[in-house]
Design a protein around this nucleic acid. Sequence first.
DNA 1: GCGATTTGTCTCTTACAAAAGACACATGTA
DNA 2: TACATGTGTCTTTTGTAAGAGACAAATCGC
Lengths: 271, 271
Amino acid sequence: MQDSNGITDQPELGPAEALTADKASGSREKGLNRVLEILEFLHVTQRAIGIGDLAKGVNAPRSTTYTLVRSLVDAGLLEMEGDGNRVYFGKKLYLYGMDYVRGNDLLRRGRQEVDNLSRETGETSELCMLQSGRYTIVHSSPGTRPFRISSATGLQIPLPWTASGRLLLAGLERAAIQDMVSDDDLLLPDGRRLQLDDFIADIATARTTGYCITSGLVDAYTKCLAAPVFAAAGKVEATMCLVVPIDTTADKTDELLTLLRQRAARLSIAG
Amino acid sequence: MQDSNGITDQPELGPAEALTADKASGSREKGLNRVLEILEFLHVTQRAIGIGDLAKGVNAPRSTTYTLVRSLVDAGLLEMEGDGNRVYFGKKLYLYGMDYVRGNDLLRRGRQEVDNLSRETGETSELCMLQSGRYTIVHSSPGTRPFRISSATGLQIPLPWTASGRLLLAGLERAAIQDMVSDDDLLLPDGRRLQLDDFIADIATARTTGYCITSGLVDAYTKCLAAPVFAAAGKVEATMCLVVPIDTTADKTDELLTLLRQRAARLSIAG
DNA sequence: GCGATTTGTCTCTTACAAAAGACACATGTA
DNA sequence: TACATGTGTCTTTTGTAAGAGACAAATCGC
């Protein structure tokens, strides 16, 4: 077990760096890996897809894909859509997901707090976590504004684009941060490029102030207020955040921030 | 952590001739199948478990189990618990589960209706579906009674024990029904044994009346009212049900049943 | 303290699953 | 009618992943 200090991952630089671009065209793949790719592919696709297309999408042989999909459908992890040649996630995954929620106090209470917060403030509120090194919106509640402020549950966004990202990485070694952030991640949606050092400085700042606000990073019309949720130790396990119009007054922002920090703190204790 | 339900038997009988009956003997198993067993095992266990125990639980070689678990943890389908030698479901499964909900109107609206219904009536309400041939409580909302009426999301119960079961099988061939119902399923919790023919007759009745009520089947103190939710065709896709004390008056029962059927019908259309 | 047990990693072998490819049957479209 | 394109199911081949086992290190039980 060597998870604690980031020794975990250097496996993938071992096998020949060849095939720079997209994907190892490689030879024979382990079935389980193919399955994991299939699931991930469905996750980004967000809708049912034909098995043929699925095979193309994960770059797997058609015959293999058919057998794997059949297994998964039999197991209930996937389901055939209506006519019977497209597949998507199945009930069993939903059940497993509910099991996860049940076993995870933080998530369960966090969802509740987020829902409350967005109902009380009318603003879009989110619960965010790191998911295998990626920033993930674990739960979001839409708020009551006329225009929809993006953000769907499960959405994954580069860490440097977000206020939460700065909090979630608090306390990590420089090397660890560097590992989690690709060059592409540092390129903001508006075309500006963030310097890694600046980002790391942001993280340090966010750590000491205990919150973080970013303006116009993900898009030009919103700003994001985020507050850390701590696990047992001092570790940042999640963040709660509010997404508000960028022209929200300073007073209003302060008020919301205070409320947000208070709720995030409430979530931290009692864990 | 003893064997709660006696699955752990055959402690040290020769692995060779273990072809007793139900279980396929040793031989080599496909990795994917092992994974599916692991997930299912965690689902019934309902908590984090050591990898060694997991290997025992699914009756897989230790080395294999370690490899698979590592893959799954890396993929985020499983997560290591605290100290790092126990595992349980991971965030990714939760995300996939949410994807399923998003892609499934019926489930999404059904959860809503169930929550409403139980809030309005104060009774425990559930949304039930068939999950790979098994009756499954897909969502439940507790109601306000002092004593907890069982029923947890994800729970699986033999079809003949439930009112919903009788509705869910409506329209199926006798053979299909027979396939889904084992002899054990026909043995009720109170020791009585249901005749398959009676059960099939119940199903036919339920189909024509458009609802089903069972009294004291799962336990002696409750009765269960169930109404069908139809998919596009006339197919029963799910049921909504209310679990109420067995001594609920006929009038009250009628009233609840009317409400339940109305809500279930509302869920059926617009699909 | 000192065995007995459990945990996590590693190596080696071969049984077998992943892949290739052929086939049959749909579609669509020139 | 031919001609492409997509789908689902076979069979065959062979690269490799599942499994057995050995190991060191941790953990438990007295």
